[in-house]
Amino acid sequence: MTAPLRDARSAAPRPATGFLGWLDRIGHPGRFLGWSGRLVLPLTVLTLLGLGLGLWLAFFGSPADYQMGDTVRIMYVHVPSAWLSQFVYGGMAVAALGTLVWRHPLADVAARTSAPLGAAFTALALYTGSLWGRPTWGTFWEWDGRMTSTLLMLFIYLGLIALWRAFDDPLRAGRVVAVATLIGALNIPIVKFSVDWWSSLHQPASVFVAGGPRMPGSILAPLLVMTLSFTLLFVVLQISGMRSEILARRADGMARRAARPEPDAQATP
């Protein structure tokens, strides 16, 4: 049933014991469909609870900013999205290694599912940032260092998605995109550094106030809860996306077999 996924596995000798062996066992596409199916509902409930608590804290449990007023609450969506935009890419880079080095069949599926999610969270970070910027800067967009590198991050995600969609064969696409993902991962720090340098040339100080660890607990608590919930949301979406990707590939395999029936099974549907 999983012919297109198994092809990649047979190419490399499989470690049977230890961590990699365990990964291999739970990562078998069929088994993944089994155990992940049981996880979706509890994780969804947990995510909704977390988001509810986080939003409640954000609206009623945290103070308005003395300068920015209530608009500061956009931060509770903006910061988690910005965090995920980086975190998801990190995950994709690990998955890319999984595709190239261990040739794990799920790594490719995971990376493919992650890319649109990462792009969506990056777009959300940009959108909320721009909403936040309107009252703060007086404009929806400012070529601020962080905003700009987030925009470039979005371009990188979209480029990877475009590359993926340009291929017909998912296995070949997976390996090529994995290489591109790693190239991107190597390049992102350089991009960030040069954008910071570029924007500091033109703007002496960032508009964002660097809060860091000196944030009062009433702000930190909702921020942490929201970040955690957003991460959970990502995990839920990722698992569901991987499940549908695996099923879509099976359907594709079935269509291929329908086109070329075995000599002894000539029956057409």
């Binding site: 400012e142 070529w143 700009t148 925009l151 371009f155 480029g159 924007s199 040339l201 033109h202 703007q203």
Partner: peptide, 17 residues
């Protein structure tokens, strides 16, 4: 995407004024 990216290149080239 290409259209938006090319546009986004200009501020890097001429500065974000």
């Amino acid at each position: 995407m290409f259209f938006v990216m090319v546009t986004a290149l200009f501020p890097f080239a001429v500065g974000p004024d």
